[in-house]
Design a protein around this nucleic acid. Structure first.
Lengths: 206, 206
DNA sequence: ATAAGATTCAAACGATCGTTTCATGCCCTG
DNA sequence: CAGGGCATGAAACGATCGTTTGAATCTTAT
């Protein structure tokens, strides 16, 4: 499945990501993962300790850079003297959308993310909260700044819908075919505009 | 777990629904289900044939009545001389929201629905398509009527986001506490208004 | 009351799960 | 070249999975 010149750890992560996206965390077995990665079954426990830790590392590998990009995009927005809901949403959406349209395994990872949203697994939620809650907090502050009339609880409630909706949408986005003759770059930009307009309208509504 | 005066089949369906919502279809075992339902392990295969068929029946039990209510609400909307996006959305949202706020196991089922959205399980999707695609088609026609400027492909794309977002939102809705002193009735109506306004804004955007 | 059918039960089936063990191969440094 | 540390290999561990079996029990109708 995977080219043999990548390291064992990387090939395991790639296969795990793809199989978790397709069959879920409980539904994909370590034997499927190691067979797809062309490595020995014991390699997972040797390199990662346990299946649970492998799941965490699948997230960490992509989320570290994804959230870095989101935060730096947000920082660029915040530096402007005036910024809109669309600006903040763009900082959130565009890095993830680039991932979901990447030709490496990024599309699979966004589907894994959507699964993590649907699952209410306690330990997975704790891992995500422990490692990445500061990102959501930063964005919540930015949204509060640009939606001054909204009380805090209502804002969190709407952000929850928006992030869930966007994650769902982006998870399915890799499947949607782009019109013939449209460049990948233009296709992504149109998708981002749609998603942002959609979410912005939702945030302003009411 | 379940009162013994309900039938074995019903208790199995109730327990399965709750456990599928919490642990997923692959994550919840038939031993957990039957233990929670206080029935013998073999009862599942006796009454349902297989785990896969049990999953289907969990859906069928709720979706039959849910989609009936959705279609009759939609029929009432279509009878009016003029109707809005909000009217059509209301026919889609209110029956499901009532389910997610019901004091029987309905809240669990909406979480099961959200899981089915996240999973791309081939056989489950085929089952849902075979049994309930006519409902989505009816709503798509109504939306097309009320959004005349939108081309068909763009409409389907937005409906996909909207139904995903709404399902996700309603799945988490049972968790959200309502303000003290607010009646359950009023709470549901406020939630419906929020969701409808949110989705309508999204559908109109762009 | 008794035969016939429907349901429940304990027990076991083979398959597969995550994990562990220990032997073997590899590369690198002394 | 010898040896120590990391990596991989085949094989097996006990646990749990969905499913099946056949006897025990309950229900129903004649």
């Amino acid at each position: 499945m995977n080219a043999p010149h990548f390291s064992t750890k990387q090939r395991i992560l790639d296969s795990a990501e793809s199989l978790f996206a397709r069959h879920g965390f409980a539904g994909a077995s370590l034997r499927q993962v190691t067979a797809s990665a062309n490595v020995n079954l014991a390699a997972v426990n040797y390199h990662f300790g346990s299946k649970e830790n492998l799941i965490n590392e699948v997230f960490r590998r992509r989320l570290d850079s994804l959230n870095e990009e989101r935060l730096s995009a947000l920082a660029a927005v915040l530096k402007k003297s005036k910024f809109s809901i669309e600006d903040v949403l763009g900082a959130f959406v565009r890095p993830a959308l680039a991932l979901s349209l990447a030709d490496d395994g990024g599309a699979g990872f966004v589907r894994v993310l959507a699964r993590a949203f649907a699952e209410h697994n306690e330990r997975l939620r704790k891992f995500l909260h422990d490692n990445y809650s500061h990102v959501l907090k930063q964005f919540a502050m930015a949204f509060a700044q640009v939606l001054p009339g909204l009380d805090k609880q209502e804002l969190y409630w709407r952000l929850d819908i928006v992030s869930g909706a966007l994650t769902y949408a982006m998870a399915d986005f890799g499947v949607i075919k782009r019109a013939a003759g449209m460049s990948e770059q233009r296709h992504r930009e149109m998708a981002a505009e749609h998603l942002i307009a959609f979410a912005a309208a939702g945030l302003r509504a009411g």
